[in-house]
């Protein structure tokens, strides 16, 4: 095929009228401006919120504020019991959520054979020996179970936190706690009441999806070559996971744990019914003690205070501490992840 010779058209002038240029620019710039405005709006909102809190709260921060208990009907003093309660709560929550979350993710990612349900089913049906058929059916059941678990994890992540709170009250406090009381304490109220252990377990349930998802991603990021190298040397699957896969995935798992902690530290609704106290004259020292918590303390200071004006600075200070805590935890998580990414990139 030959290319048709280009016909010379009378040269259109490159010079446009000023008016044409103006309208053209306008058509081009207005949408861009609107897009930019939307993003600036977010930055501005965040700036206003953080600026307001930092401005009003910074003056409140002092050694005394961080290390003493509230006084005079919460209009004076510090927030130490709330900081202590939050930290204790989050530690207990981590002890519960990380092992269960990591174990679930390892099972789902490393031990469920295949993923293709139709194929597994066809294999099971086509099996000629009963032994093969049994193994095939076992695979089908495992795949179904894994799917159900994944669906449960995803749905768990979408449940409103207040529902977790009510569930915690009904299940942990009344059912488990009450059951313990009936069985071991002759019905005397010991564990069957809101307590730090029940709040921590409720929170653990809430943060479980975070741990599972990030562990799953960390496991998926471990190169297949490393697993194969280990297995080809005669290592068992468990040895491979323990000596090769988990050390590689550890930073990712830690990131997940930290994100879970920062999520848990900021939640109020789940601990509302399950263990957080309005005010306690002592620090929690047993699992069935109640506790004070930063988020809940913010709620109390802003709605239950006898003197709103006197409480205001305390409120700002508390919010600032809560924000700083969750931000710091998030920052640690992000830093670890960045370090791991760098290391992975350096390798390839």
């Amino acid at each position: 095929m030959t290319v048709a010779p280009r016909t010379e058209s009378p040269a259109a002038s490159l010079i446009a009228s000023r008016r044409a240029i103006f309208w053209e620019r306008l058509r081009e710039q207005v949408p861009i401006g609107l897009l930019a405005l939307a993003s600036w709006l977010i930055v501005a909102m965040l700036g206003i919120i953080l600026g307001n809190i930092a401005w009003n709260g910074a003056g409140q921060l002092s050694w005394e504020f961080l290390t003493t208990a509230p006084r005079a009907g919460m209009t004076e003093g510090g927030i130490f019991p709330a900081i202590f309660g939050t930290v204790a709560l989050v530690i207990l929550m981590t002890i519960a959520t990380v092992p269960i979350g990591v174990a679930t993710a390892i099972y789902l990612r490393e031990f469920v054979p295949g993923s293709n349900l139709a194929y597994a089913w066809a294999r099971a049906r086509a099996a000629r020996q009963w032994r093969e058929r049994l193994i095939g059916l076992g695979h089908v059941v495992e795949i179904l179970f894994a799917r159900a678990t994944r669906a449960a994890v995803n749905n768990l992540a979408g449940v409103p936190s207040i529902v977790f709170g009510l569930f915690g009250l009904g299940f942990f406090v009344r059912f488990i706690g009450g059951g313990i009381d009936r069985l071991f304490y002759g019905g005397e109220l010991t564990y069957g009441q809101p307590a730090i252990i029940w709040a921590a377990l409720t929170l653990a349930l809430l943060t479980l999806p975070v741990v599972i998802v990030s562990t799953d991603e960390a496991l998926r990021a471990v190169p297949r070559e490393l697993r194969e190298a280990s297995l080809a040397l005669g290592a068992t699957r468990w040895q491979t996971i323990w000596h090769v896969v988990l050390p590689e995935a550890l930073p990712g798992i830690l990131t997940g744990a930290i994100l879970a902690v920062s999520r848990g530290a900021g939640e109020v609704a789940p601990v509302l019914f399950t263990g957080a106290a309005y005010f306690l004259p002592y620090l929690p020292s047993r699992l069935n003690d109640q506790f004070m918590e930063l988020g809940y303390h913010v709620f109390i200071l802003s709605t239950q205070s006898p003197d709103v004006e006197k409480t205001k600075p305390l409120l700002y200070g508390t919010v600032l501490v809560l924000l700083a805590l969750t931000f710091a935890l998030n920052a640690v998580g992000v830093l670890i992840r960045a370090r791991v990414r760098r290391r992975l990139r350096a390798r390839s």
């Binding site: 070559e225 490393l226 194969e228 190298a229 080809a232 040397l233 005669g234 090769v244």
Partner: peptide, 14 residues
């Protein structure tokens, strides 16, 4: 696998 060792296409040291 202990009796049949393997070396892969892309070197994959731990």
């Amino acid at each position: 696998r202990r009796r049949v060792g393997m070396v892969f296409q892309r070197s994959n040291p731990f």
